[in-house]
């Protein structure tokens, strides 16, 4: 009887050890699948945070349209911010750019006409600032890019009106690389 019960206890012990080991392996595989993209997830969260900040940026006093349109950037305000170094530390982005019209969305960077005071508004890209960080993710959001346009009727008559295009605001955040030491 003693031997029998001891055998039973031994059997149960071995079975429990086997079950625990097996479920540990299953749990490890499950965790490996669920958490395999942890750096990817960290970058996605940083991207989401940047997107939220960008949406708020269009409605900030530095960019918002005079006519109280939501998600609208005033081009005449934006062009005056070029080469202003004060704002480099003000916003939490590594770079900030505005594409002024939808015809430029599918152009490469080198094909875009860079905006300056001289060629505005006949240009594609306003670069507010660029910290030139190595390893940057760019997040973008569609905005209405509006400016004042003058309509000339001749005989010294004319009027100004709001001309709006579909533009894009592009902000950069630093990319978290698993191989980097930071």
């Amino acid at each position: 009887m003693n031997i029998k019960s001891q055998l039973r206890i031994q059997e149960m012990a071995f079975m429990l050890v086997g079950v625990v080991l097996f479920f540990s392996l299953v749990g490890l595989i499950g965790m490996g699948i669920l958490y395999s993209g942890i750096y990817k997830e960290a970058n996605r969260l940083a991207d989401q945070k940047t997107f939220g900040a960008m949406v708020a940026l269009a409605d900030s006093p530095e960019f918002s349209c005079v006519s109280s349109k939501s998600n609208c950037i005033d081009g005449d305000k934006a062009i005056s911010l070029i080469n202003k170094t004060n704002y480099v530390k003000f916003w939490p982005f590594t770079s900030l750019r505005i594409i002024t019209r939808y015809s430029a969305f599918n152009k490469g960077y080198n094909q875009m006409i860079k905006c300056s005071i001289a060629n505005y508004p006949n240009c594609d890209l306003i670069t507010i600032y660029d910290k030139k960080v190595a390893g940057e993710i760019a997040s973008s959001n569609f905005i209405a890019f509006c400016r004042k346009e003058y309509q000339d009727f001749g005989n010294l008559q004319g009027r100004s009106y709001d001309k709006c295009e579909i533009g894009m605001i592009v902000a950069g955040t630093e990319y978290k690389n698993p191989k980097s030491k930071t």
Binding site: F51, V55, K69, S70, N71, C72, N141, F142, I143, A144, C146, Q151, F153, Y161, D162, K163, C164, E165, I166, G167
Partner: peptide, 27 residues
Amino acid sequence: SDLMSNLLQATMYYTTDCYSTNNEPRE
């Protein structure tokens, strides 16, 4: 998607090539 909603919102303000009778372009 917030991105698509923002695209729609931006599209609503887009100035078209359709002018009203007082020669003003319409959004």
